[in-house]
Computed example of a mutant assay.
Amino acid sequence: MTQPSATTANALTAISEAGVSVWLDDLSREALTSGALQNLIDTRSVVGVTTNPTIFAKAIAEGNAYDTQLRELAASGTALDDAVLTLTTDDVRNACDLFAGIHAATGGQDGRVSIEVDPRLARETQATIASAHTLWDTVDRPNLFVKIPATVEGLPAITAAIADGISVNVTLVFSLDRFRAVAQAYIDGLELAHQAGKDLSAIRSVSSLFLSRIDTQVDKALAEIGTEEALALRGKAAIANARLAYEVYEEVFATPRYEALAAAGAHTQRPLWASTGTKDPAYPDTMYVDELVVADVVNTMPAKTLEAVADHSPADGTDTVHGTFEESRQILDTIERLGVPYGKILEGLEDSGVDSFEKSWAELLGDVTDGLAAAGS
């Protein structure tokens, strides 16, 4: 990870002051021990971290930062799944400690570190709930977010986790209908937590709406249609979808049902913009940051996107979401009118997202298996 200077992060400062929480979509032991992550906190306005199985697989496969612990785990005969749990939760716990000051200073809103339940459980409600409890108890830090996928089976798991006082980052959200369902699952959980006498002010949640994956698939369909009107809509679906999700956010968390919970100390479930690295080199590499500046959101960025924003983003803190809702509706309506199977694309993205994380989890298991074997030989 490159060492940033303090003089090039004006856009990051501006969007942070506008209410966008800048989180890093990456974590490794090397970044923790070298001071690189602390440097990003100091110079890049980074106030949180998200992880996923792909990130952990990459971190453990590269370098030798985990060698000592792998030797210890091998010597003690630790089982594979337990070894993976130990390796990943140790990193997340240490990151939580690094962000503890930010967590305290923001009243619990930021300074958050996310870890995902085993993606093989994405279609199993009860197993997901059990995994969420294991991660919450093992990391044992108040600024943890447990990531639960927004599958149909994941929705009741979100409610159950929130009801038990576990803060949740809901991942793999694509459609507006699912975004709304996730918000309702959160509110359901808050009501149960309140009935059980839990402190609602200690419970937090974000709903992670994925961006670039939508444009990748919608753009393919628009290119196949090939008309001037269709081609002009490339790169517009994901941002329109996210802007309309923010409209849903404002609607849901202005209802009397939620306001009663807010009076008891509850917080809204903030939208989180995920998958913010552009896939098409024809698009500005800061597009999913510049076009989604608005208060009360999180933007989690890969390191490359974070540096691009610091280097050349035109964002100055101006709200780029309010006032766009009707235009956004027209964009998505036109995409569907042209024959793009937009709903089916979003359904497919959820399935492929789960499959992708399962594949990364298998890679993670393989990397740890190899590491344990090498350490024990």
Rank of each mutant, 00 (worst) to 15 (best):
T2C: 00
A6T: 00
S16L: 01
E17H: 05
G19S: 10
V22F: 15
W23R: 07
D26L: 05
R29A: 12
A31C: 10
L32D: 11
Q38R: 09
L40Y: 15
L40R: 15
T50F: 09
P53S: 08
A59P: 09
I60P: 01
A61S: 08
G63S: 14
G63Q: 13
N64W: 06
D67Y: 00
Q69H: 15
L70A: 02
G77A: 07
G77I: 03
T78G: 02
V84K: 08
L85V: 03
T88D: 12
T88R: 02
N94W: 04
N94S: 14
C96M: 05
D97V: 10
L98W: 14
F99W: 05
G101K: 10
E116D: 14
P119E: 09
A122S: 14
T125F: 10
Q126H: 12
A127G: 04
A130F: 09
T134E: 15
T134M: 13
L135K: 15
L135V: 09
W136D: 12
D137Y: 08
T138S: 15
R141P: 11
L144V: 13
V146D: 12
G154V: 09
L155F: 14
P156L: 14
A160L: 10
I166K: 04
S167V: 10
S167F: 13
V170T: 15
V173R: 08
V173E: 05
F179T: 06
F179Q: 02
A183V: 12
Q195M: 01
G197C: 06
K198I: 06
I203M: 01
I203W: 00
R204W: 01
F210W: 01
R213T: 06
T216K: 04
V218E: 00
L222E: 03
E224W: 01
T227L: 03
E228R: 15
E228Y: 06
L233N: 11
N241S: 13
Y246G: 13
V248S: 11
V252K: 13
P256F: 10
Y258S: 11
A260Y: 08
A262D: 07
G265P: 05
A266Q: 14
H267C: 04
Q269E: 03
R270E: 01
A274V: 00
T276I: 01
P281D: 06
Y283F: 02
P284S: 04
D285Q: 01
T286I: 05
V289C: 04
T300Q: 09
M301D: 06
M301T: 15
P302L: 04
E307H: 05
A308S: 07
A308D: 09
V309D: 02
V321P: 04
F325V: 00
F325Y: 03
E327L: 02
S328F: 00
S328T: 08
S328E: 02
Q330F: 04
R337K: 12
R337L: 09
G343Y: 00
K344T: 13
G348E: 10
S352G: 07
S352P: 03
S352K: 10
S352V: 13
G353I: 07
D355N: 14
E358Y: 11
K359L: 14
A362T: 15
G366R: 07
D367Q: 11
V368P: 08
G371S: 07
S377W: 12
S377R: 13
